[in-house]
């Protein structure tokens, strides 16, 4: 393995990455001594995990281990919160490996590091984070893109990594990747030319759109907005409380089904409890017909008046 020598260094989701692969989607950074370094290497991955506790159509999970083969792309093996091994399939394009690495492998890594990965995009407002969580297709990335166009800094467009500050115990969101993933129609409505983005996978009309800057440090969280579309006429917003809030946040946990088999049931629950107890959440419903311009103004106005 002569190619092994060249290494790349990044910082994302609260960890330093020492990588065998180049990631244009990540912020370059050299490891500092205080934070752990996650090693990313090409190598052989197992067929089956030894202590297998759960599996699905693709994944396998065991205490502190996660294995994910993706047909024609690569197999990812995430271990102990500090090691990711990638076994690429022959002739695969690196950009395709990155798509699954940045979502699935990094999501599993977050669980292993006892962070809380929430399916949410996030932007910075007045030095604090506003999160937009929801199912795939409700407009999380579009909303992040729109706020980006308005001059707000984007913190992440897909997974929000929530962490507990070691000394103060405060909940913080970690800056994510320097890219938005946008579908072609969203690119059009944001007036972003196709040339400004990179096609993520052949056969998929979805682009990686680089964003120049994201916050450098973890941020305090002002609020979580649970986003959905509905067939009514008015934009609706109301506080989420108690069991309802708990259920929403639990449901939007990224790959929640990995928590128990990887052995994090109790610490994960404690973090979820903490998030529900300390962060305000709102249900935010966008009418189908509603254009995004009015919607963004409405949302902006709401988080300004609810600081």
């Amino acid at each position: 393995m002569a190619e092994e020598t060249k290494r790349f260094y990044y910082y994302a989701n609260g960890v330093y990455l020492d990588s065998c692969m180049k990631f244009p989607e990540l912020t370059p950074a050299y490891p500092s001594s205080e934070k752990t370094v996650v090693k990313i290497e090409f190598g052989q991955t197992p067929e089956k995990l030894e202590n297998l506790k759960a599996k699905g159509v693709r994944f396998q999970a065991a205490p502190n281990e996660f294995l994910l083969p993706i047909d024609d792309v690569a197999t990812f093996w995430v271990k102990n919160g500090d090691h990711i091994i990638i076994q690429p399939e022959p002739r695969v394009n690196e950009s395709e490996i990155r798509v699954f690495f940045l979502a699935s492998a990094m999501g599993a890594l977050a669980h292993q590091r006892r962070q809380f990965p929430l399916h949410a995009s996030a932007i910075m407002y007045n030095g604090k984070a506003i999160l937009f969580s929801g199912d795939s297709g409700v407009g999380k990335s579009t909303l992040a893109g729109l706020f980006h166009k308005k001059g707000y800094q984007v913190i992440t467009d897909d997974i929000s990594i929530i962490d507990k500050e070691k000394n103060t115990g405060q909940l913080l969101i970690e800056p994510g990747y320097i890219q938005l993933k946008l579908w072609e129609d969203t690119m059009n409505s944001l007036h972003i030319g196709k040339k400004e983005g990179v096609l993520l996978r052949p056969g998929l009309k979805k682009y990686g759109y680089p964003i120049s800057s994201i916050p450098k440090k973890p941020l305090e969280i002002q609020a979580i907005y649970a986003l959905s579309v509905y067939p009514g006429k008015e934009i609706l917003v109301r506080p989420l409380e108690g069991w309802e809030k708990f259920r929403h946040i639990k449901k939007r946990t990224f790959r929640q089904k990995l928590v128990d088999p990887m052995g994090y049931t109790e610490p994960h629950y404690r973090l979820l409890e903490d998030i529900c107890q300390s962060l305000p959440a709102f249900q935010l419903q966008r009418p189908f017909e509603e254009g995004y311009t009015t919607f963004v103004e409405f949302v902006e106005n709401h988080f300004q008046t609810n600081q």
């Binding site: 159509v57 693709r58 798509v99 979502a103 699935s104 795939s136 297709g137």
Partner: peptide
Amino acid sequence: TRSLLDHYADVELSDLTDHE
């Protein structure tokens, strides 16, 4: 429903091609 299928696919369907 995308979110239902995402749950069982172990990846986001939105990262897969129509063929996949």
